[in-house]
Nucleic acid binder design. Structure first.
Lengths: 393, 393
DNA sequence: GCTATTTAATTCGTATCCCGTCAAAAATAT
DNA sequence: ATATTTTTGACGGGATACGAATTAAATAGC
């Protein structure tokens, strides 16, 4: 019970950035007494800081000035990472989720043996931590966001384009490797939380995010919590079945996945090289501007498929807002227009107007930051969840 | 806090049917002391009853015999109803959800003006209440389950095949009409809760139910709670988009809805008559047995579409169990087989084995009982939610 | 410059609630 | 009748939250 209130207060402070006790009490519906008690304990634990200046009410404020409270950035450090097929992005973040250092490694990791991948990730984590002027033992937790179907609770990767194998116990492997608690999460879930904390869903506790990258991912926020399937399973939109074709089931990924849009490019060509470097979509955009008809029609086909799938998601979840993110958005007009058209055609009239569509081209760093948020959210709850007994002097 | 524990204890008693305090304490993880306090207050409020006999442990039980506690059936009465296009089914249920009386009215209500429909419903409610030897003012709450997209919180019906109009404030209308709090809920949600309380999901707090009737509905249970969209919106599977056809969007309902399967039957014919009476699917089954090829292929088409949609639902929600209900199941082999085939083809390998498929041919009464459960669940929480202060003497 | 006013935060006392321990009650076995 | 076993109820301790009163720190007015 106290744990719940503690978390609520802490979260209220985080959302506000800087806030006085009175206002916490207003927002949480807790009495000022309780807020005082809780904030005292939070101050005591070093999780928040008090700042005497900064009372930003109307300039001529009478009465005792408010003492502003904010998160103590140094209360914890976490590493968040986005692991994609052709790049890895790491960030070190402080307790507020603010990024302290970034590291991008442009290298192809998919289809590599697992221990090569874990090696590379370990390397990236270590380098990024050093860049932030920290040591690994100052890091409280690490979270890796990767594409695919991931069981968050167990850290079990059911399937991912990153791995050749299915069913990897990735969290366990990496935890042992790094000597730091490591969480594995779907990349879509990570960017969903990033938007909830810092992006275009700060004001909402219910929303849906669709990520259009190599893999098509989904994040559903419900009451401020990620909605996970059984066993904390993440969703994979690319697996959605669209119909039966000559070679069996046609899935969304086969029309709207990155490789489906860009097609098989001749090895060594400039396009193939751009794809290698994660610039495939940007390159495609310039080709589309030059009226490359193959690409244009691929983009339109992908947009239509996405738009329809999106409408179905909205039919099922009816969120007030859907945020679309991912590299495919860089394709520009033909893709976006056909997506929007298909969406508005496919959305049932009865829920028209319920959902607002928002497009966002986040940087890779935001994804990694989202992974850091996943790690932070777990920290927020667990280690100080139990009320510490007053230490005997 | 007490409210939460109270609810948990009450719910534990309901689930068990009859249970001793010790066992409540075991199941809820509450101390026997607390359980005693709470049960005393529940007994005091007349919500539960104590029965001295009925200790069903090993016959030769030494020690003080257990006092079994069970819900007081008379603590409340509710009316639940299933309103379909061609029939209305009412039940009066006691506090346990047990049915006291049933009333089925086989009449076509769709496309009637609203006040005709409300008239008929009012009539049905009143008659069913009388059948249970009760008066309307002894009814605590009414819940109507209808097909379509319904906002549970507001009782607003966004669209329903029952109504000619969209956007009807049905809960308000009926509450005024009956003088009893009336809740409106999607029929799929009702049957979902019916299965949670009495049917094939008693053991699960997470599951998905798909209802295949005139309308294709969906109920998602998540942590024992119905998962609703924004504003308590219900889902409508029939609105799912499958692809673009010559006449615009092809939706699931146009392939697998009742009318899509049965087709347009000549007015006055035996088939049309059967449909009128809600026996359309049964009649179709006999025709299929007689190798009516039009129907067989319609059934197969419908089954395929449903199977694929089902696989997509499972991809998104990954529930441990999916329950399929509804009149279309009566079609038998061709429908069920093609559904199963399409499902196993469309289900992504990465989540194969997560979900168990269960078919259930519930009676209409069960649907109405589910609506009663919706009403009861609200009663369980609200009126005794606050701890009553000890009355002065 | 002093006092009154206003607003913020803390302290204190009270009520609630849960749990652990212990005693009472109710049956059976000897 | 007595001992044993099991369940139930009662009392005190600990934690928590809230309301009222108190203290704190600033401004406004004279």
């Amino acid at each position: 019970m106290r744990a719940i209130n503690r978390f609520n207060v802490l979260d209220t402070i985080r959302r506000a950035g800087s806030i006085a006790r009175v206002e916490i009490s207003e927002r949480t519906q807790l009495s000022t007494t309780t807020v005082s008690a809780i904030t005292a304990s939070l101050l005591d634990d070093g999780l928040i800081l008090a700042r005497t200046e900064g009372d930003l009410r109307e300039a001529a404020a009478r009465g005792r000035p408010r003492v502003m409270l904010e998160l103590n950035p140094d209360a914890a450090r976490v590493v968040g990472a986005k692991i994609a097929a052709n790049r890895m992005v790491f960030v070190v973040a402080d307790f507020r989720g603010e990024v302290l250092s970034t590291l991008t490694l442009a290298l192809r990791v998919d289809r590599q043996p697992i221990n090569v991948i874990t090696d590379l990730i370990e390397d990236g984590v270590r380098r990024c931590v050093v860049d932030a002027d920290l040591a690994l033992d100052e890091i409280d937790s690490v979270c890796l966001g990767l594409p695919g179907v991931i069981e968050h609770r167990t850290g079990h990767v059911r399937s991912s384009p990153i791995f050749r194998e299915n069913g990897v116990d990735f969290a366990k492997d990496m935890s042992e490797r790094l000597g730091v608690t490591t969480i594995v999460e779907s990349d879509a879930h990570a960017i969903t939380l990033a938007h909830h904390w810092f992006g275009k869903a700060k004001d909402l506790d219910d929303m849906v995010l669709v990520s259009l990258e190599q893999t098509l991912g989904l994040g559903v926020l419900h009451g401020g919590q990620l909605f996970r399937g059984a066993g904390g399973l993440s969703h994979n939109l690319g697996d959605l079945a669209l119909g039966i074709g000559p070679q069996g089931m046609i899935r969304l990924a086969s029309l709207a996945g990155e490789s489906a849009i860009l097609g098989d490019q001749p090895n060594g060509g400039r396009f193939a090289e751009a794809i290698r470097l994660g610039r495939g979509m940007a390159h495609a955009k310039t080709l589309i501007a030059a009226e490359d008809n193959t690409l244009i029609s691929a983009a339109i086909r992908a947009g239509e498929a996405c738009g329809m799938a999106l409408a179905n998601i909205v039919t099922l979840f009816a969120p007030p807002r859907v945020i679309l993110v991912g590299s495919s958005l860089a394709l520009g007009q033909p893709f976006l227009d056909s997506l929007r058209d298909a969406y508005s055609l496919a959305i049932p009239p009865s829920i028209k107007g319920v959902t607002e569509l928002v497009f966002d081209q986040s940087t890779d760093e935001t994804w990694a930051q989202g992974a850091a948020v996943v790690a932070l959210r777990e920290l927020y709850e667990s280690p100080w969840g139990t009320t510490g007994p007053a230490p005997a002097l």
